[in-house]
């Protein structure tokens, strides 16, 4: 009987899973496994290939002067972007859930960059960042800030990319936080108010703990996606100047499609995978201490 039930469960599960799992195997799992195999070869994107074991991985860490550079750039990007994105998204979500009217309109406005082709807005951002003529420099000039070649200076190019990315991306998390904040029962907030809690205290004591799972979710997903930053750097700077904005996936893309070194690119992808995995597991561990589930 027990066995029969198990088998029945298994059968139902197989039935429900099979459409997705067949597609998943074919279109995701196989290519992923292949990329792992490819990473063990000297695998030009086309042409003769040769098995070389872990040589690609060894080259990455010992020979390639650019790899540490792009790793550093990517880390800076991920750290700054995730922090700014989450803080801004949370602040705007708190603000928007506090106004009674027009919240939906503002929400749509802040979500708009998500649906706008980045190849178009990327160019506009380049104009905004232009030295001498750009709006940003002219605005800062009012406060006596000297003219900055934002995208052209190794020291500032990454900040410009981050600013642009936050503009583009924070609307997504904002929506998630808005949803989280709406889910908080009014009664709990009221109760705290009656106890004499101010706005700040309500946030710290009630709202923050209650939406901490969604903050956690947002951070995990944003970290994963920002490690894979590509479009922005490709379109805004192509990694320049002097590789100051060259990021891991951009470098990977160039290796696979421009330099035609598929095996090397695949090795890079698996290093990236390992990094993201470690980060995600770390976050899962931290989650236990910081996230409150009811």
């Amino acid at each position: 009987m027990q066995l029969g039930k198990n088998q029945r469960n298994m059968l139902t599960a197989v039935g429900f899973l099979s459409p997705n799992i067949i597609g998943f195997m074919l279109f995701t799992a196989i290519p992923v496994v292949q990329s792992l195999i490819i990473s063990l070869y000297d695998w030009p994107t086309f042409g003769e290939r040769k098995f070389i074991g872990l040589q690609n991985y060894i080259d990455l860490f010992t020979k390639d002067p650019l790899f540490p550079k792009v790793m550093g750039n990517t880390s800076i990007y991920v750290f700054c972007y995730v922090a700014l994105n989450i803080v801004l998204a949370l602040a705007m979500a708190l603000w928007l859930t506090n106004i009674q009217r027009g919240e939906k309109l503002y929400r749509s406005v802040f979500f708009l960059p998500q649906v706008t082709p980045i190849v178009a807005t990327g160019m506009i951002w380049k104009w905004l960042f232009l030295p001498k003529y750009g709006i940003i420099n002219n605005f800062l000039g009012i406060f006596g800030v000297p003219d900055i070649n934002w995208l052209g200076t190794t020291g500032t190019a990454m900040s410009a990319i981050i600013i642009m990315s936050v503009w583009q991306g924070f609307g997504y998390n904002m929506i998630i936080f808005i949803a989280g904040l709406y889910a908080i029962p009014e009664s709990q907030i009221e109760a705290a108010r009656i106890d004499g809690a101010g706005k700040w205290q309500v946030f710290i004591k009630i709202k923050f703990p209650l939406i901490s799972p969604s903050i956690f979710f947002a951070i995990v997903m944003t970290v994963i996606s920002s490690f894979q930053v590509f479009d922005q750097t490709m379109i805004m700077t192509a990694g320049g100047p002097a590789n100051a904005t060259n990021t891991l996936v951009l470098y990977l893309y160039n290796n696979a499609f421009t330099y035609l070194k598929m095996g090397y690119a695949a090795a890079m992808a698996w290093v990236l995978f390992a990094i993201i995995m470690i980060f995600t597991l770390l976050q899962m561990r931290l989650q236990k201490d910081f996230v409150t589930y009811e």
């Binding site: 052209g152 200076t153 190794t154 002097a242 590789n243 060259n246 160039n254 421009t258 330099y259």
Partner: peptide, 19 residues
């Protein structure tokens, strides 16, 4: 392609005045 990209990247930095 890889060589020319490398050169361009560094030329940009030179012409912009970074190095």
């Amino acid at each position: 392609q890889q060589v020319t990209n490398t050169i361009s990247q560094n030329l940009e930095a030179i012409f912009i005045g970074n190095v």
